[in-house]
Design a binder for these strands. Sequence first.
DNA 1: CTGAAAGCGCTTACAG
DNA 2: CTGAAAGCGCTTACAG
Lengths: 332, 332
Amino acid sequence: MDREATLHDVAGKVGVSPRTVSRVVNDEGGYSPETRKKVLAAIEELRYRPNMVARALITKRSGTVGLVGGDMTDPFFPALAEGIQHRAREAGQTMFFASTGSDPDRQAEVLRSFWARAVDGVIVFPALDSIDQLTDYGRRGLPIVVVDDLVEAPNVACVLFDLPEGGRLAAQHLLSAGRRRMGVISATVSPPRRRHRERGFVAALTEADGDHLPAVIAEADPTVRGGEAGFAELLSLMPDLDGIFAYNDLVAIGAMRAAAASGRRVPEDIAVVGCDDIEMSTYITPALTTIRLDRGRLSNEAVAALHDLIDAPAQRRQPVVLPVELVARESA
Amino acid sequence: MDREATLHDVAGKVGVSPRTVSRVVNDEGGYSPETRKKVLAAIEELRYRPNMVARALITKRSGTVGLVGGDMTDPFFPALAEGIQHRAREAGQTMFFASTGSDPDRQAEVLRSFWARAVDGVIVFPALDSIDQLTDYGRRGLPIVVVDDLVEAPNVACVLFDLPEGGRLAAQHLLSAGRRRMGVISATVSPPRRRHRERGFVAALTEADGDHLPAVIAEADPTVRGGEAGFAELLSLMPDLDGIFAYNDLVAIGAMRAAAASGRRVPEDIAVVGCDDIEMSTYITPALTTIRLDRGRLSNEAVAALHDLIDAPAQRRQPVVLPVELVARESA
DNA sequence: CTGAAAGCGCTTACAG
DNA sequence: CTGAAAGCGCTTACAG
């Protein structure tokens, strides 16, 4: 438990200046092969590792990226966090993680903490009403990738799924299965301006049949529990409901459970379409028909966009829109 | 996008020394109320935030904890990460996360990266054969909480579930349901020395009926796929198998799927007990009987143990063993 | 090819 | 109650 070796220690051991050791550590060139060899040997012997904290203090780069999520226990999230962490590490970066529970105050706290620790950039699943925060940090120079929302500001890039198309696909699938009395379960954590899947769904219904097709909307937590509650609400609005589009797969699963509990069969009486395509959806009975969002793709695009932003901060860029697809299984 | 305000800027604005500003920022006392008020006002006006990087360089404390996991996509993990992150934030710390895929080389890389970034401590789900690494970092002064394994070293504390008891409970449950031809599916990522649940299971069988009760063991990946393969292997070893204890719930779900695919009914023909109690287990059909591991409790204990270690490094402590319970549902 | 000096933004003894 | 000085472990101009 002695002190860790420093650049200075290595220099002393070899008999060169710290500047020279710094050169070889960072592969800058400008030293003889012998010098290099001796320095490397000393580094090995002293187990020298560059102190990233000291380096960060000068360079303003800490080799870290921050991931700001809503809630790690949302099954949509882990694969994403894993992918981002993986990509970041390939670039020599370490990942911070913090969740906000969609609360803007907690998001502010998280951003402040990340900023004070000199993160190179952040990937954010924005909390409710937090665009101003993000714009502000972007202006102050923090590279930000926003997922699933549009914000225009310096140093901010956006990556999103084509959720309107997802809603449309769900509607078409339900319609072609002969469903005519539809309900959608939206999420309380999703502000009106971000309800793209719902809008796509309703738009497709309208296109299909003028505005004569009724559609009721319920709001719920984005959980299985929420889905159960949402189903009850939908039913109270439209007792002869025969098709449901759910905010996500968890909600869809909740809706199916509530349907079963009320004596209705899925898909015979009520067809259900989810969104996300989490692993569980293939294992439940009936297996869930859903809109697949490719999380691996999202991880890659988000990290790529972030590195882009870090390398060329000035340049503005277009939002990246990721395609979605409908996966037909048993529930619809 | 100007430069951020520093202690020096605040001092200049108020007309005091940086030392004085530092005092009020850190609530050290030793300043007049008026000075304090003026400093606070200047901080507000300049939007001053302490630079944690600079602070860390001196104090050797960065206000960060590292979580080193196997794989975020293991459904056991997210709730844990969420809990740890939550507790850490309550203590003013930010969480690093990296996964190792149970690969010791990747774990070494992760630990090196965390160490170079001056983490205050780490919570580790150890990769295969990586005790030496952990012992080494402990000796060098890194506070480490090891989950689910026993390692004796300075600065290392251990938190584990009572897995032998879990195995015992599973065996007793299966026995009392009249099962006599048992199989266990173990995980390839779990080294022999860490197979406590399996040992507990076999021990209970032996106690119950001398050593006449046969039990076959298969090895598989800790996934649904793995469970399917494990079931096939078990069946080839013992065609009239009637009870299975699986490494975790994912494996149990895989085994149930394979059983159904082979025309066997669960639990009538084969009873299945899992381990972990992930959310999915309550939603599949039949609902899974399993050994519940309380992840919230684990998060709390791990973070508490880490803070203990940070506050009183010298002191050795006993491993913390967390109780487990069997949750009887439909599969056994 | 190599090094002396300054400094990143703080805290830590120490003196008054 | 307050401040001048040194230094954490590096990198960044700059000079030779």
